[in-house]
Design a protein around this nucleic acid. Sequence first.
DNA 1: TTGGCAATCTGTAACGTTTCAGTATATTGA
DNA 2: TCAATATACTGAAACGTTACAGATTGCCAA
Lengths: 351, 351
Amino acid sequence: MDRQRRGKNEGASAQERPTLKTLAFMTGLGVTTVSRALKDAPEIGAETRRRVQLVAKQIGYRPNRAGVRLRTGRTNVISLVLNTDREIMSFVSDIIYGVSEVLSETPYHLIVTPYSRSQDPMEPIRYLVETGSADGVIISRTQPNDPRARYMLEHGMPFATHGRTDMGLVHPYHDFDNHAFAMEAVRRLASMGRRKLALLSPPPGLTYYSHTLDGFADALSEVGATEVPFNTVSIDHTIEQIRSRTAQLMRRDVRPDGFVSSAAAATLAIVAGIEDAGLKLGRDVDVVSKQSSDLLHLFRRELLVVNENFRLAGSELARSVLGWIGGAAPGSLQSLVVSGDVQAFSQPVAV
Amino acid sequence: MDRQRRGKNEGASAQERPTLKTLAFMTGLGVTTVSRALKDAPEIGAETRRRVQLVAKQIGYRPNRAGVRLRTGRTNVISLVLNTDREIMSFVSDIIYGVSEVLSETPYHLIVTPYSRSQDPMEPIRYLVETGSADGVIISRTQPNDPRARYMLEHGMPFATHGRTDMGLVHPYHDFDNHAFAMEAVRRLASMGRRKLALLSPPPGLTYYSHTLDGFADALSEVGATEVPFNTVSIDHTIEQIRSRTAQLMRRDVRPDGFVSSAAAATLAIVAGIEDAGLKLGRDVDVVSKQSSDLLHLFRRELLVVNENFRLAGSELARSVLGWIGGAAPGSLQSLVVSGDVQAFSQPVAV
DNA sequence: TTGGCAATCTGTAACGTTTCAGTATATTGA
DNA sequence: TCAATATACTGAAACGTTACAGATTGCCAA
């Protein structure tokens, strides 16, 4: 249970980690001067500044994070808050890499703060705000009226959301244009002669649920197609649930001849369900799906895909939070990305 | 650029965050006493102890991490070191959740420390050790002679590896028995009458590469099958590379009638390659693949799968590092897991 | 009564950093 | 010449915690 502190290792060959005091001693200056010299304060002589910075670089000085944090309250930490059981696999992976990429050139560390199905989504947020464990937060699964965003806004915690809110409050976000996605998907299906379309939507409650539904509806009326209701499942349901519901649907008299799916894994289930019902993809029905990594075309080459780049989302979100922390106006840190490339893979790769 | 410190908010309705001093004032004790009372030190009277702990709980006292860290050197941080571009998607996601699950009941935070293709894998390790940014580290992509493990061992940084090393040094690890996996896979293919088998291996250099190869070879000789060399690609190659190499291979005169694949994404590429060559899965060739989430059977029901549980790996690794930090013998913190369930999905789900 | 001792409790210092309130020296204006 | 001012630097304090070295009290044996 007891842990040895990393004490002064006198006599050992290993060097003690340099601090401001070390630098002060080496340069013959006071710690205050050294501290200011390192951050280019104007009241330090140009030569002194250069000298201090040179020595610091030479001996590999790195500010002690605990010291800075205790003194300033700045943690140099960005927290990514994730749902442990509902988050899309590739989302987690890609967004972490996207965030990391941006943070790697800064003193910021990325901490992952998870919460599970059973927990209140507010809990990790309250924890972060109350303990001041991060300078900025990134959240996903954003809702139109999102208590997390409201809370952080009220408590002055900089954050960015993946997806927009709709509360009349302004904050940084990054969003994929799901309205455009749904429209494009419907148009695509319509252009192939599909007229009775079903939508496997995002989970109701999240903002992009209605974005997707609106886009779907708008395009339906534009192209004069009709909807076959398929709202007993969403992409949050299990593969098995989606599969059996799809099969059920496809066995009905009025069945869709086209699907729009908001997630790749769910699409696998839809296709399985279609085939369970004895129908054939590309002949009886077509499917347009979002995907975040280029794997669906390997699955069934008849699938139509739209790509959503989660890595980009991660980078943008990180940039936004850092921007807010750095004092930029939250309203200027919003981005909406449209994926133009609806593509089909109809030809096998030539060898 | 300038950041306001979270100063004392006198007059504001928001409470100042309680510290030991707050507790000391409220209980009428000294901060030292309060500090010790909270950690059940024996020299504190039983009643005092209870009283302090009660008040602490009531006002929601939480130790300031920066204070603890500055004073003790303990960071209460576990770092997960990940390769930004070679790591399997589901691995990242699942291992993070596995680790989180264990850490959630402790004061530890999880920080993700990434490194990219272009970087020396040692760089993040050196950073962590030199700056003392974590109390423990988890690494993946372990090599037989792993400089990262050696370095951390030399510098007294507790860690756990996903995969074993082979340097005669003892440290915590969690590993999936890839020797057993490869043997089971070969046996399975042999039992279906497959005799000429190809292996899509892990990347050479990693420890489980040779484990897999050995298991493959051992089982080949056991069942009297032969190997069709397929070692110009590994699961680290791109989908396209694996796909075209597979197609190439399948067009040769002596082509395999069975594949063993060490990763699910790679398996998609193998199947695509097989079909590119005009052959049919289940008829001309069978494939056994590892997978970490139950999706491959949706892809082609003829696929034979073995499950590797990365979430479990994450939990085990976290437990191991915590154990080491807590003073347990590193040799007692090793686990090897065997996946017995080789399973095939031959029947569509009945509806 | 005194000394010894256990049981409880306490003040001070230190971890590394930044900020506040200076100090010393040189420079300028009149 | 003197005061005012700018320039370059500095010590002390504080952030919240823990460890060290006491301090106080009551109790018991001598």
